[in-house]
């Protein structure tokens, strides 16, 4: 039986693995893809201490994985389909049918981008609708694109897209941005970026490729069509918490509630990173929570 099973190989899970490994807990980290999580799709990380010139998401994740592997618990590819309480521990069932017994579980399953939920979005995903500028930006060289959203991600990605697209329209439902000031200044001073304020996307237009977006002005109700070949959607995230929704308490947006030791409402289950209910979703908070969760496991098992 394992001391701890860590689910998810983003920064929170990798930090938990590092600390669990150094505490010599018998553990395993399961990641359904390759370690990294959302950081893998981040072009450039400028707000993680220790890297004054910034670092690419790729590199940072590589370094975190290497460091975790150096001390840690085993890191394995696998997808969890169910967690069951059994006796004093848990039985975790993987999608290939494998069963793993563990005393504790650290849930570090992260979050996934939110969809707009408008007509045309699903049909045109991969055909001009994108949730990852670093992946798909190069397909829009010298074209016109729209970015939907007004937070850090939206503005950072809009700035990134200026490398490729000739024009970027940022469509935002309010008349000011939520993004940090330094990103706002960069975006406002970039001649390729134009803001469409107080507006929401009602429909994504096009048959086989994106041809435009239908926009509604929220104050006047005016409807207009904007011709673009790409739509990049950054309107926030949803936590990946379906796996534990019947086991632990969630907040009203489905993020996992914990105490300051990262303990959830069910003894033996801990949560860390973007799947956890908290004010700031960043790499720096994720790693801190991963470390705290591993420390709590060690403390609680003693």
């Amino acid at each position: 039986m394992l001391d701890v099973l860590i689910i998810g190989g983003g920064p929170a899970g990798l930090a938990a693995a590092l600390y669990a490994g150094r505490a010599q807990l018998k553990g395993l980290l399961l990641e359904k893809l390759s370690p990294g999580g959302q950081v893998l799709v981040t072009d450039f990380v400028e707000n993680y201490p220790g890297f004054p010139d910034g670092i690419t998401g790729f590199e940072l994740v590589d370094k975190m994985s290497q460091q975790a592997k150096k001390f840690a618990v085993e890191i394995k590819n696998g997808e969890v389909s169910e967690i069951k309480k059994e006796g004093h521990g848990f039985v975790v069932i993987l999608s290939n049918g494998e069963r793993i017994e563990t005393k504790t579980v650290i849930v570090a399953t992260g979050a996934t981008h939110r969809n707009l939920g408008v007509k045309g979005e699903r049909k045109l995903t991969g055909k001009g609708v994108s949730y990852c500028a670093t992946c798909d930006g190069p397909f829009f060289r010298d074209q016109e694109v729209a970015v939907v959203g007004g937070g850090d991600s939206a503005i950072q990605e809009a700035i990134f897209l200026t490398k490729f697209a000739k024009k970027i329209y940022v469509i935002h439902r309010r008349d000011e941005l939520r993004a940090v000031k330094i990103l706002q200044e960069r975006a406002f001073s970039n001649p390729k970026i134009e803001f469409i304020w107080d507006s929401v996307v009602e429909e994504i237009l096009g048959e086989n490729q994106v041809e435009g977006v239908r926009i509604r002005h929220v104050k006047t109700g005016a409807i207009s069509d904007l011709s673009v070949q790409g739509v990049f959607i950054f309107i926030g995230i949803e936590p990946n918490t379906t796996l534990v929704k019947d086991l632990v308490k969630l907040d009203d947006r489905n993020f996992i509630k914990t105490d300051e030791w990262m303990r959830t409402s069910l003894k033996g289950i801990y949560a860390a990173g973007d799947c956890r209910s908290k004010p700031l979703l960043q790499i720096i908070t994720a790693v801190a929570e991963g470390a705290t969760a591993a420390f709590a496991v060690q403390h609680d098992l003693e």
Binding site: K32, L33, T125, V129, C135, N208
Partner: peptide
């Protein structure tokens, strides 16, 4: 018409059977 990667396309006898966009689980 690929404008996003990763895209996985499953072909059988030269015909597209399935197209999956984005990183998905096994």
């Amino acid at each position: 018409g690929i404008r996003a990667i990763p895209t996985l396309i499953l072909f059988k006898d030269g015909i597209v059977v399935e197209q999956i966009t984005g990183a998905v689980g096994k």
